[in-house]
Write a protein that binds this DNA or RNA. Structure first.
Length: 511
RNA sequence: GGCUCGUUCGUCUAUCGGUUAGGACAAGCGGUUUUCAUCCGCUAAAGAGGGGUUCGACUCCCCUACGAGCUACCA
């Protein structure tokens, strides 16, 4: 029977969600949309010790900013499988744990964390680096496979804390198909008797994830590579429950690596290297440490998801700039690369620049409105739209755009004195005030009109354009960089241009 | 240490046994531009190493090296 495609992104709210998490969510989303399925957001908060206030909201906010919208889930309207927060689903898991206990696929263990630590420490001391609770060791431990039934009952009755562990087969190959990596095999002798239910009655990720995926009718589990090692346990759980028929397809994504050195990109890297590794800025509620975000850095969400989508996936053609719709259209898990991708901030910048350039001037004007107003500039739509037309090719980030052409909104703050010293010399310097008149009296105030009039003046005086233009540019903008001079004059307007020119010229005398 | 996964230009990647190994970012050079940016053109740049299989391997197999993930009553 063909089942409707249903995928989920299941982060745990233990801090801000990393770029890698966004990419996982994105791939889930793209696959769901591609196949006409549902995308679900489920919060895996089974570890109450690691709860971080605000983290869940952060996840929701970043998905919203990125335009990765779940059909069901926390923050996006509950669907038929509510609740979507595992802590709220707590009462449901016991039934499944009991099922496993009854069928003999799981057992009860009384060992305390301290005893287990001791066990591991002893093993390490004796040169065994990897002690595990398994078919061979469980008989020496305190559990329902080693203890008499009446003692087990007595311990439970008197309130001893216990956990439920999965009874891992002793030596069995577990083979499963991964959509990205093809067939993967593990031998159960390498796997341990994982805890399924903690002493506080909360399931571990392993149990909760399998039960929830089953209950929520998930068809594809797309998650990070860090889960590959525990995938065989999950497969075994599906079998133990008798759910193998509806076991989801697995797809394990490679990790995003740090730009320099080795290892996966981590929270520290971002700010160490001068760029963000989070979608949104995050302030740690405890330490108040700030981790910068792409949104605040001036990234457009479309550029951000386009870029991270290509970190480990490509459509198989040479197309790089893609809208979300195009990505959906091209997406396929088979085209996801197996190896880890090293993150390259330079290319990320290029993507953003491409997107900024493509935004219509008037839309761009709206987008930088708040930034301009915040700086105390008066916002005039037509003026700012024209400003955007002139400046957008020079901006990489949205934030740049509201800054690089500040001289269109206020007086020049700093002058390029090198150019002034070099160019503000006789005979040109003594004739420059004529340019002020030229502007004031110019009948055709269009860009070409100005240019024609100016060039005629230059020729009439026997100057070269290069003698005068740089001075004009610095007088108007303070810098040698910027849009064409006559475009600047045109936008600034007759009065403003003349006034600024006059002012700057008298300043030039003092340099 | 053990297990698992991975390895094409500096970076992201294409190639699904036969190609001058292609594209993009970054770099360098040149053009356009009064300047900067944009844009355009060009250049340099790769199959980790060793064995097989094959008429023929980047592509399939094995070994080695290197990298990564996992190895919790964390996810």
């Amino acid at each position: 029977m063909e089942r409707k495609v249903r995928v989920r992104y299941a982060p745990s709210p233990t801090g801000p969600q990393h770029m890698g998490g966004v990419r996982t969510a994105l791939y889930n989303y793209l696959l769901a949309k591609k196949l006409g399925g549902d995308f679900i957001l489920r919060i895996e908060d089974t570890d109450q010790n690691r709860f971080v206030p605000g983290a869940e909201q952060y996840i929701i906010d970043s998905l919203k900013w990125c335009g990765i919208t779940p059909n069901e889930g926390i923050g996006f309207g509950d669907g038929p499988h509510a609740p979507y927060r595992q802590s709220e689903r707590k009462p449901m898991y016991k039934k499944y744990s009991d099922m496993l206990l009854e069928s003999g696929h799981a057992y009860i263990a009384f060992d305390t964390p301290e005893e287990l630590d001791q066990m591991r420490a002893n093993a390490t001391a004796q040169g065994v680096p990897n002690w595990q609770y398994s078919a061979v060791t469980r008989q020496y431990m305190k559990n329902s496979t080693s203890l008499p039934a009446d003692e087990v009952k007595a311990r439970i009755d008197r309130g001893d804390q216990y956990v439920v562990r999965f009874k891992m087969p002793r030596n069995e190959d577990v083979k499963f198909h991964d959509l990205i990596r093809s067939w993967v095999t593990f031998n159960t002798s390498q796997l341990d008797d994982k805890v399924l239910m903690k002493h506080d009655g909360m399931p571990t990720y392993h149990l909760a994830n399998v039960v929830d995926d089953y209950l929520m009718q998930i068809t594809h589990v797309i998650r990070g590579e860090e889960w590959l090692s525990s995938a065989p346990l999950h497969v075994l759980l599906y079998r133990a429950f008798g759910w193998e028929e509806v076991m989801p397809n697995f797809a394990h994504l490679s990790l995003i690596l740090k730009p320099d050195g080795n290892g996966k990109l981590s929270k520290r890297d971002g700010d160490r290297l001068g760029f963000p590794s989070f979608p949104l800025t995050w302030i740690d509620p405890e330490t108040k440490e700030v981790s910068s975000g792409y949104r605040e850095r001036g990234y457009l969400p479309e550029a951000f998801i386009n870029f991270i989508a290509l970190l480990g996936w490509n459509p198989g053609n040479d197309i790089e700039i893609m809208s979300k719709e195009e990505m959906i259209n091209f997406f396929s898990l088979e085209k996801v690369h197996k190896a880890g991708a090293r993150f390259d901030f330079e290319k990320a910048k290029w993507f953003n620049q491409q997107y900024v350039k493509r935004i219509p001037d008037d839309v761009l004007a709206e987008q930088i409105k708040d930034a301009l107003v915040a700086k105390g500039y008066t916002y005039e739509k037509a003026y700012v739209t024209e400003y955007c037309r002139l400046m957008k090719d020079r901006a990489v980030f949205l934030n740049d755009l509201s800054e690089i052409g500040y001289y269109f909104f206020e007086d020049v703050k700093t002058f390029d004195t090198d150019t002034i010293k070099k160019k503000f010399v006789t005979p040109v310097k003594d004739k420059l005030n004529e340019v002020v008149d030229l502007i004031t009296n110019c009948e055709d105030f269009s860009v070409t009109g100005l240019e024609t009039a100016f060039k005629a003046w230059v020729a009439a005086n026997g100057f070269k354009i290069g003698d005068v233009m740089p001075l004009l540019r610095v007088a108007l903008a303070g810098t040698m960089q910027g849009p064409p001079v006559f475009e600047m004059i045109h936008l600034l307007g007759k009065d403003k241009s003349a006034e600024r020119l006059k002012k700057s010229l008298s300043y030039f005398e003092t340099v």
